[in-house]
Design a binder for these strands. Structure first.
Ligand SMILES: [Mn+2]
Ligand SMILES: [Mn+2]
Length: 243
DNA sequence: GGCACAC
DNA sequence: GTGTGCCAACGCATC
DNA sequence: GATGCG
């Protein structure tokens, strides 16, 4: 079949190449991906709603490099944004269920939203703590460091909301009043990360892989025009980012 | 994948 | 209606 | 500007 239609909130939605194999190892197709997002569309939308998204299009499946698209001409919803480079552009900003399915139609597996919303694109409403185990470490190491993150957040009177990344790591999000700019939020992430580094043997903020061993606290993901895979994203492993 | 533009 | 060519990322660290 | 990293 070169084309089919799925029901999204009572409306038909066209899906091209539904039989295209996206995950050769598991045999999962594009239609399987669409059905995943239909199944958890409320949660997936919660993660991307009103946020500019970087489209990461796995057009040839997970065995090949994805195509990154920041300015998708012809998206159902486009919002004017300014990039750090000062180049203007229009990014896709999902607002409803069909917008999530549109990303699946574009061969997106992991959804990559900004940490700021359209109503105030200069002030993030999420501080994101990205825990990346180095090659010799696994999820269990990330889980241990996450406990230290919780201790530091508790001391600061902040609340962290954790999820698996879908790879080997963990993401912890802190809701913010959109009152600080990207630089300030990133510096807060750095300060928090340094404190975690002091308290936990495995935690590191070293940028160079050679100088890293344990769990990398990737605070730079809080920069302007940087993104992290949101909840219910499917990663190239086939695992799903799960709150 | 989608669009503009032949043909 | 079908075929073809073309387009679609970038921030931060470091040297 | 180029390379490493995400
Ligand atoms: Mn990560
Ligand atoms: Mn990372």
């Amino acid at each position: 079949m070169s084309e089919t239609t799925v029901d999204v909130g009572g409306e038909p939605f066209r899906i091209s190449s539904p039989d295209k194999v996206m995950f050769p190892e598991q045999g999962w197709t594009k239609l399987d991906v669409v059905e995943h997002f239909l199944m958890c569309v409320d949660g997936a939308l919660r993660g991307v709603r009103d946020r500019p998204v970087l489209l990461k299009r796995w057009n040839r499946g997970v065995g090949h490099d994805p195509l990154f698209v920041k300015r998708p001409k012809g998206a159902p919803r486009l919002v004017d944004v300014t990039f750090p480079s000062a180049r203007p552009g229009q990014m896709f900003v999902p607002v409803d269920e069909s917008d999530v399915i549109w990303m699946a139609q574009q061969n997106c597996l992991d959804l990559n939203p900004w940490n700021a919303r359209a109503r105030d694109l200069q002030h993030p409403d999420e501080l994101r703590i990205d825990l990346d185990p180095t090659d010799e470490f696994d999820f269990e190491a990330a889980r241990e460091v996450a406990h230290t993150v919780k201790a530091v957040l508790d001391d600061a009177g902040l609340v962290g909301w954790p999820k698996t990344s879908g790879n080997r790591g963990i993401h912890i999000y802190v809701r913010l009043v959109p009152e600080w700019d990207f630089y300030e939020v990133r510096r807060a992430g750095l300060a928090l990360s340094r404190e975690v580094e002091r308290r936990h043997e495995l935690a590191t903020t070293a940028w160079w892989k050679e100088e890293r061993s344990g769990v990398f606290l990737d605070y730079n993901q809080n920069a302007w025009d940087k993104t992290i895979a949101s909840a219910y994203s499917i990663r190239h492993t086939g695992l799903v980012s799960t709150p």
